[in-house]
Design a protein around this nucleic acid. Structure first.
Lengths: 233, 233
DNA sequence: AGTTTATTTTAGTCTAATCAATGAAATTTG
DNA sequence: CAAATTTCATTGATTAGACTAAAATAAACT
């Protein structure tokens, strides 16, 4: 006799998948309000408990925003809730900061080539880059603002690669990245006249991109990270 | 009158954080069995429902493995459950496969330099690489095995970079990566005598690594991806 | 010993009730 | 009437208790 398995998958997973399907399909858009738990549970023909397990998961995944007293809302995929939970576990595994800086160096140097290839498609972002540099010039003394602009500069750079995977990966790392960038700048700025040096690096990178010179851009980025690395030791 | 907020954070989040703390601290290791839900709920002084919300989240995060009738077990951080849920949402955003291949090319070419720098620390992995190539040679006809070995080769390569961030990022992408490798190999192998070509590429990469020749390794890797790319168009 | 059958443990699910935060409507107040 | 306040309906947060189903264990029976 042959018996086929009917339905072993947990209910909450089915719910999550169904919601994700609706988001993907377009029936649910960012900002949309989900029905109240009681109603939605009835619609799905499941208990509130199961639904709430699904909602908790989706909250951590960053696809729904649950506001007590108001309701649950579909949100743009926000990676922070998940990352901030997982981060401590990743940090557990030995020296992490060094690897992160190394990885960042790796990916930014590799990515800059991509950026050069796509300059023409991103003229308005080029403007933003220029603006950021100008602002850097005007805020050489303000370490806090400098750090913020530094982060902004690199973020714009990433998006100019026109590669969604690159952007997503760095978005996921962004949270951690920001901390290290700030940390880097702080320990760098404490040593001598580094603010001007960092400004020069960013300017060099910008110029190389404008002239679509891959080699120059790569060299400028390498120089940037060499400098940062040397100051950290 | 000044009133300070007491406790707004949801219970399930507190539980998750507490468990993660115990894992990070070492009190909970991979494979350890958690107390039964009823017991644990009592220990934490929360309801079973709240505990189960926490457990669901941790299951999706890939840090506990829940087995009906058996119990819940701490597991090594497994990213598959999370990725397989999030993937459809990421896929939503336009053409994805091309970007993925591009990103893979980027990161592997960048990573190979790292690998060269760390050859000496990874002699046993070098052996594994060699073994994999030998097996490739012996299975030139079997496309399925070839794909599996291909994936294995690149996976070993990653870990030889001795960079935990690199490994983790690629682990997170691994699921998708495998599909593209298989996909690539299938559409490549259908055209002419490509199996030998792929074998040669992997051998070249291996040889370059053994002789710690960064430039040769980079060139070999670039050639590999150029070949793959050209066959796909 | 080896197999089969109860029993127990444990996760999966549901129902129903209460608590707490929010926003809107009704009420009071100036 | 307008503004502040109170009340109340809505909605998420949490709990308690019951029952089902799967797996492991113990007991019974060849």
């Amino acid at each position: 006799m042959e018996i086929k398995s009917i339905q072993t998958k947990k209910i909450y997973k089915n719910i999550v998948e169904q919601i994700i399907f609706l988001i993907r399909e377009g029936s649910l858009k960012s900002g949309d309000k989900l029905p109240p738990e009681r109603t939605l549970a009835e619609m799905l023909d499941v208990s509130r408990a199961s639904l709430r397990e699904a909602l908790s998961v989706m909250e951590i995944m960053g696809i729904v925003d649950i506001r007590p007293g108001e309701g649950s809302f579909v949100s743009d995929l926000d990676v922070l809730p998940f990352i901030s939970l997982v981060l401590p576990l990743l940090l557990k595994e030995g020296s992490f900061e060094d690897d992160l800086i190394e990885f960042r160096r790796l990916i930014e140097i590799a990515g800059i080539k991509l950026v050069c290839k796509n300059v023409d498609k991103n003229s308005e972002m080029l403007e933003e880059l220029k603006d950021t540099i100008v602002q850097m010039e005007e805020n050489l003394d303000d370490a806090e603002t400098g750090a913020r602009l530094d982060i902004k500069f690199h973020r714009i750079l990433f998006s100019m690669g026109n590669n969604i995977v690159l952007v997503k990966v760095l978005e996921y790392l962004g949270f951690i990245l920001e901390r290290t960038v700030k940390f880097n700048r702080n320990s760098i700025l404490s040593k001598g006249d580094s603010a001007n040096m960092l400004l020069k690096h960013h300017t060099d990178i910008y110029d190389a991109i404008v002239s679509k010179d891959e080699n120059a851009a790569t060299k400028a980025m390498e120089a940037h990270f060499d400098f940062v690395g040397s100051k950290l030791l």
